[in-house]
Design a protein around this nucleic acid. Structure first.
Lengths: 202, 202
DNA sequence: AAAGTAAACTACTCGGTGCAGTTTACCAAT
DNA sequence: ATTGGTAAACTGCACCGAGTAGTTTACTTT
């Protein structure tokens, strides 16, 4: 039971874990500090010793989840590889991100609040940076290299990701469909690449 | 002020309008019956005379919004028109739906709750039917007619709509970006059609 | 008489605090 | 190494003020 962790640290972890569950299940408003404390098997007073308020606890959870998948989708432009190959890699790595549990949890927790309060959204997005940045930079490079038609890279990125998320993100988030299998992911990625290049490749 | 409406009916409309605002701003949990009644300039008791509970009022709002745009996106397959032409029409009409205020309000109100509680989602979706049905039937027809590659129509529909929603729905819902102008809509629709047909046209 | 009204009221739940008493962690002295 | 002491952390409980959904009452308007 010791696990080489001071008891205080154990409690803290228990609180964070319980808070994550609670927020995930009930959202920010629905979550209750009493229920959360009970779930963590910790006195409510202890919760408040670690985190002064519900808001601060919530932001800690969000930040924790953000950091947990800081390995962004980094795609680098290689002039001597085919666009197909590079984009396919990007698509698969995006799919892996979408399928990862921590990323999904983060979205499940935050997006519901985003819809209601945009100011919360912006603060989190600032902290998160742009995980899509890699792709839109890649597109810019490909355009400069004369291999893609001139197009707003942000817009094209949205299209590409939208194509993937349409089948591998929104249905799972909104109607908890199951995440596509690896074979299905392959098809989704290939379709996205084919469609995208059919439109923009020179 | 009379407008040939019985006073009871006027109050009812005021309540529905106020409830819509309240739910839209604060979500189901955040909305308060007291605040709602004040907003409608109506006694709280009157609210409860019309709607026995908060849940029932909420479902009435959702149903009302659903019905308000019952004109679904109906696209019919015409064997002697070009696929481009038909799909473009469908895309534009989808964009018009996405841009319509009542449709957007419906989503703003419901999707946040959907993310949290899938069972609520399913009941509403049942009542809503499938606004995408038109398109997926169209795709099936085009496949049977030998003009599109064989593909799961549901999947292809998701891709097509995902392409459009990526720029004309999710950004507006989550980070309240402004809705694209008519010219931008035209571009979005054309891009979606071009990409889609480049992938699936025979 | 029917419907609407304000206001008080019930029976909660919520986030957050205060406090007395217990447990843990850690450091020093034996 | 065991002891003892101290400071910090944890506990449980009562409590606060505010706010919730929903009800009741007593009164007014139409």
């Amino acid at each position: 039971m010791d696990k080489s962790l001071t008891l205080t640290a154990q409690k803290r972890l228990a609180i964070l874990a319980a808070a994550q569950e609670e927020f995930k299940e009930k959202g920010f408003l629905g979550a209750s500090m009493d229920s959360l404390a009970k779930r963590a098997e910790v006195s409510k007073r202890t919760v408040y010793n670690h985190f002064p308020s519900k808001d601060i606890l919530f932001h800690n959870i969000v930040k924790e989840l953000c950091d947990s998948f800081s390995q962004a989708v980094n795609i680098e432009y290689h002039p001597n590889k085919t666009l197909e190959q590079q984009l396919l890699t990007a698509a698969m790595s995006e799919l892996q991100l979408l399928g990862s549990e921590c990323f999904f949890d983060l979205n499940r927790i935050t997006l519901a609040e985003f819809i209601r309060s945009p100011e919360l959204a912006s603060s989190t997005i600032d902290h998160l940076g742009q995980q899509t940045d890699g792709l839109h930079v890649w597109i810019q490079h490909a355009i400069n290299d004369g291999r893609l038609k001139s197009v707003d890279p942000e817009y094209a990125t949205q299209q590409f990701l939208g194509l993937i998320k349409a089948t591998a993100f929104w249905p799972q988030l909104l109607m908890n469909q199951e995440f596509p299998s690896v074979e299905q992911q392959q098809i989704i990625a290939e379709d996205a690449v084919l469609m995208f290049l059919a439109r923009y490749k020179i």
